[in-house]
Nucleic acid binder design. Structure first.
Lengths: 134, 134
DNA sequence: CTGTATGCAAACATTTTGCATAAGC
DNA sequence: GCTTATGCAAAATGTTTGCATACAG
């Protein structure tokens, strides 16, 4: 589960570099479309399909975190390694990374108690942060 | 948050009844498309758009639980009241309801530790149940 | 040179919407 | 009868894919 055979060598292209740099430069979750717009605004135009493909491959490589927003679109964010969750302000989008050893253990226990194996979980928290009114 | 002004009275139609009965009859998560197919198979044909509209309204009314599957489609399930989570077999769809007092408390604590208020969370677990091979 | 990555447009899948018609109350 | 609900087809969304071309190695 840690390394997969790189079916393809992954080439170092301008586009891939642009996406990686953009993701490295921010701390927020961005959708493929946002990344596409950001890049175009920065003059580093990259095709939308390429942005999708690149973000997916970065996610598989573990360089970015992928999550599905409540509305259904995928969003990506540069990410520290390892499994963890997020606490996201639903007003301003500010994100706090949470490593939840506690929850991991709980999840594993619950799964096996019910006879489930190979279990994973998805947990995201949404709230209003202390910098946001109402 | 318990009662909302019924903008529209909600009429008792054959279609709505069919959807509600179908949802009442099963214990599994069904997508709108599946419900549509099930109904057609049962001879109680209902337009797909109507199924979507009805499931949404049932979800808003709290009669069914709505969740977004990892693949991105919405799925609905008849549901006991109150907040809880699910452990879902990613092969056969079998679902176990989990009331996670432990997690609720943990979530609340983490949120307030980070200065977040009005926090909610989304947690779903996916695995392989003991009736499913590999 | 060889073969992967890109861009574009078309294909896709899911969900939403406009509008004429059917039907609940 | 007045008005909401339905069905259909079209539109909207977000994402993926086929294919010719560009370009990294």
């Amino acid at each position: 589960m840690t390394s997969q055979t790189p079916a393809t060598p992954v080439r170092d292209t301008r586009q891939r570099r642009a996406v990686r740099e953009l993701m490295a430069s921010t701390d927020a979750f961005r959708t493929a479309q946002q990344v596409h717009d950001d890049l175009r605004a920065a003059g580093e135009s990259v095709g939308l399909a390429t942005v999708y493909r690149t973000l997916q491959s970065l996610a598989e490589a573990g360089e970015v975190d992928a999550l599905r927003q409540p509305e259904g679109e995928m969003a990506y964010r540069r990410c520290s390694d390892g499994h963890h969750h997020h606490l996201i302000c639903r007003n301003c989008g500010r994100t706090v990374e949470i490593s939840a050893t506690e929850v991991e253990r709980w999840a594993e226990r619950v799964a096996s108690q019910h006879g489930f194996r190979d279990a994973g979980h998805e947990l995201e928290m949404f709230g209003l942060c202390d910098r946001c009114p109402d």
